[in-house]
């Protein structure tokens, strides 16, 4: 994709400074390569003819703020993505969580909620959903509305059903939703234990204690400093012997909290807090 209007690195920095100054959103610790590509993509999608016009819109039009945040952050997610990851949650993590009287789980950067619903299904099948709370947070209020609806594109269901089976699911996946035109509306019982809130990993603090925190494919968009800050925030928010789950290309290895954790034996990207 080649955008008509190319932005210089200086212009990108100017927009990021505007976002902090005018709107209080700090993207300055996001990885530049991806962020620059997303901003140029947005400029192309919305057909801005000049940098000045784009900057004016970003600074002056409050309704454009949501559009900017929604398009610049990445909202690509799937149900039961990475079959071995979900198999490990099902077989190794949930049996441990089952020993707590109340299970609190945080999906940080939940996007449109496919992973939250995947987790709700796992909990339901382990007969743990009734004593679980799933906190789903994202920087972007628009995606939380989608999580609230529990509606996902029907054309994805074949793929999700395959993912579910490969990750060890034994039921008929279609029992979890009803098809309405091109939408799959998920069983309301799954959504009842989900609590939604906007939360910015850059600027917001810990708000509870959890036994499991999932933050997958979020920190790849952060620079090293922000990655470390986010991991400290998770460390502050995780109970002793709780679990932290990251994306398949993310690691705790180089962070300052790494000494508090031990990766689970099968080398999935799940760490247990041992200190």
């Amino acid at each position: 994709m080649t955008a008509d209007l190319q932005l210089t690195d200086e212009q990108i920095e100017t927009i990021l400074e505007d976002m902090v100054e005018v709107h209080g959103y700090d993207f300055t610790h996001y990885s530049r390569a991806s962020l620059k590509r997303r901003i140029i993509r947005l400029v192309s999608l919305d057909k801005f003819l000049s940098f000045a016009e784009f900057r004016f819109k970003v600074r002056q039009d409050p309704s454009y703020l949501n559009r900017f945040v929604e398009q610049v952050t990445v909202n690509v997610t799937e149900m039961f993505r990475d079959e071995t990851f979900y198999r490990t949650l099902r077989e190794d993590v949930l049996p441990v969580l089952a020993t707590w009287p109340l299970i609190r789980i945080w999906h940080a950067g939940c996007s449109t909620g496919e992973e939250v619903y995947s987790m709700a299904i796992l909990l339901q099948e382990a007969n743990l959903l009734h004593k679980s709370l799933l906190y789903a947070t994202d920087i972007n209020p628009a995606v939380l509305e989608q999580v609230r609806s529990g509606v996902f594109p029907l054309h994805q269901m074949k793929q999700y059903s395959d993912n579910y089976i490969r990750s060890g699911g034994r039921k008929d996946f279609s029992m979890y939703y009803t098809a309405q035109y091109d939408a799959a509306k998920f069983d309301e019982r799954l959504g009842k234990r989900i609590i939604l809130a906007t939360h910015n990993l850059v600027s917001d603090r810990s708000f509870n204690e959890f036994q499991l925190i999932l933050c997958r494919n979020v920190m790849i968009y952060f620079d090293k400093e922000l990655q470390d800050r986010a991991l400290k925030l998770f460390d502050d928010s995780l109970e002793a012997l709780g679990f932290l789950a990251l994306g398949s290309k993310e690691t705790l290895k180089f962070s300052t909290v790494t000494g508090n954790y031990r990766q689970i034996e099968n080398k999935e990207k799940i760490w247990r807090k041992i200190k």
Binding site: R32, A33, V74, V76, I220, Y221, K249
Partner: peptide, 23 residues
């Protein structure tokens, strides 16, 4: 480049992974 991620490069010559929409 790993499967299922876009591979980008930063000014300091380090890699960034990105799982945004397919291109």
């Amino acid at each position: 480049a790993p499967t299922d991620y876009h591979l980008l490069v930063e000014k300091d010559h380090s890699f960034s992974l990105d799982n945004s929409e397919k291109v």
